[in-house]
Design a protein around this nucleic acid. Structure first.
Lengths: 164, 164
DNA sequence: AGCGTATAGTTTGGTATCAAACTAAGTGTT
DNA sequence: AACACTTAGTTTGATACCAAACTATACGCT
């Protein structure tokens, strides 16, 4: 950090002197939408850095966890649970299969659908990813504070479920 | 809504009957990162739909507000306040200028930098966008609940500022 | 069985984003 | 003044995503 000044100030000239002037966020400062985005991106970015250490991307993590917890899940079900369009999943699953972390076979009951399962190799990777995610979560917990945590998550869940 | 079932269940056969089986989210259910992402995306998506009504994109909104509140701000300062890379801003500002909502001129003090200002036409658009955003916020407030709102935003701000 | 409709997954086209390389202008040191 | 270094903004290349069009099954109705 040298030339950067976070997200909170800018340089302006005021009677011949360069001084730090705080950025005026106007109504954004009090609005949920804006702060939700900033928080999400900061958290994502932090997790991204962490998961680089084990050579994985954050997007793979939720996907692999959901497959592991729901053996035989289809891609459409998976995409819904994961909150992404099914078309976004195509390259992700392709990659996981190519790397031998996930096995994919046609369902007997519906030959259109695939049945996804985590392989033993996938389970090993998932264990590492989970450890990494837990460290990240501990970090978040620390920022949030133990007594607000539960309530905070509840509100997030309500927003995801109820907003229209 | 017909074939969809939200993000909470999947169809499975169990003794000859197709029944709804809840998706198992495993540790994701209790983790901040995952829920933060789901909430942010739901809120963004809702705001996206709203701002379509007035023919604008959500990304333009924060940008225009920040320029209006900080006349003469430079693109780099703006990108930092907005939490985006400066290169992401190039096409956005280009578009706002092209549509006559923002005026851009070189700074006298530094000929590399641009000085951004909202035009009268831009102010008109911003007024509409703000009204639209306020409706969205009222909706979020309703989901969050008035007594938790302040604390909730505080936590979001802390995450954005303190996570590493 | 045959026809129309619905569904699972892929493909395609477009947008938003970042990171790194680049250009042009500013700053500092000698 | 010459040189290296920094900084503002753009360009380029890559990734992640969505929405709509598409292909192939599957289902439902007659």
């Amino acid at each position: 950090m040298h030339g950067t000044n976070g997200t909170g100030s800018r340089r302006r000239f005021r009677n011949g002197e360069s001084v730090a002037v705080p950025v005026n966020f106007g109504p954004l400062a009090h609005w949920v939408g804006f702060n939700l985005r900033m928080a999400q991106e900061a958290a994502f970015e932090a997790f991204s850095r962490r998961s680089q250490d084990i050579g994985e991307s954050p997007g793979r993590f939720a996907t692999l966890t959901l497959i592991a917890r729901n053996p035989g899940i289809s891609q459409t079900e998976l995409s819904q649970a994961n909150g992404r369009d099914k078309s976004s999943l195509t390259p992700v699953v392709e990659d996981l299969v190519r790397r031998g972390l996930v096995e994919r076979k046609r369902m007997d009951s519906d030959r259109r659908a695939y049945s996804l399962n985590v392989t033993p190799a996938g389970k090993k990777v998932l264990t590492m990813m989970t450890r990494c995610a837990r460290r990240h979560e501990r970090n978040l917990d620390h920022v949030i504070g133990e007594r607000d945590r539960k309530r905070f998550i509840q509100i997030l869940k309500r927003i995801a479920a109820e907003i229209e």
